[in-house]
């Protein structure tokens, strides 16, 4: 920095007429710390010391050793284990995931489906509905016959709902649900939000619902309440699960 010529930083008020002694006194008293500072001197040009070079050389060797240990640089599979199965400690038994009671397992999965598919968008996370959709809590069609509920989820609904109020059109929101997901979300809405039918819709029943839906004249088009009442006002065929049956929490199938 000190290589600057004295003129280059001259400020306009510092011309030759300034009283140097007075100005110096003012700087020294008002900003003493600044006035007494050293200027930064030119950089020194000592050679790099031997010890620094030796120490850096040793560390370079260590770093090189680390890199030398890499056997396959760009092997992207070296640390991936396809079809990985969790190891079992010696002497222990492989139990897999811990079985849960059917009602809890189906409801847990059902809640995820309820959010993921988008039910919660209109019916709300608490199932109380709103301007766009009726409340699921205490709804006669939700807690009533299971085939009617499954048809609404799979195909949608237009016209008046169970209370007679018309909310417009609901699309075929659940058309792509797998049977276990349909069973889970039905169980969830029938037992959540204050509803308690205490029954668990089995995967077998959900499969039957999907079959019935596929047999409609125009699968995927929204149902009317007339069609629901005429053709689907019944329980789904198949056996419901006991709420206390132990099931696999992932696959939702009963475990022995």
């Amino acid at each position: 920095m000190s290589s600057n010529s004295p003129q280059s930083n001259q400020k306009p008020d510092l011309d030759e007429t300034i009283n140097v002694t007075q100005a110096h006194g003012r700087v020294a008293s008002e900003s003493a710390a600044t006035a007494r500072e050293h200027r930064i001197a030119d950089n020194g040009h000592e050679p790099i010391s031997l010890w620094v070079i030796v120490a850096c050389g040793v560390v370079l060797l260590i770093g090189g050793g680390v890199l030398g240990n890499v056997t396959s640089w760009f092997d992207y599979q070296a640390l991936v284990k396809p079809n990985y199965v969790r190891g079992v400690p010696e002497g222990a038994e492989n139990t897999g995931p811990v079985a849960k009671e059917a009602l809890a397992a189906y409801s847990t999965k059902g809640q995820k489906v309820y959010t993921a598919v988008g039910c919660s968008g209109c019916h709300g996370p608490d199932g109380r509905g709103g301007a766009a959709a009726p409340s699921l809590a205490g709804s006669a069609w939700v807690t009533g016959n299971t085939q009617k509920l499954s048809m609404i989820i799979l195909n949608g609904l237009k016209g008046p709902t169970s209370t007679g109020k018309d909310y417009g059109v609901m699309g075929a929101i659940g058309a792509n649900l797998k049977p276990d997901e349909l069973a889970a979300v039905m169980t969830y809405v029938r037992n959540g939000f204050g509803n308690s039918t205490s029954d668990v819709v089995s995967i077998e029943m959900a499969q039957a619902a999907k079959d019935a839906s596929a047999k409609r004249d125009a699968p995927g088009s929204s149902l009317t309440s007339d069609e629901l009442m005429a053709k689907h006002n019944q329980m789904l065929p198949g056996v419901a699960l006991e709420p206390t049956t132990k099931v696999d929490p992932v696959k939702l199938t009963p475990v022995p």
Partner: peptide, 10 residues
Amino acid sequence: TNLQDAQLRA
């Protein structure tokens, strides 16, 4: 120069 420098710094 020193004075100008100090004033610039200040």
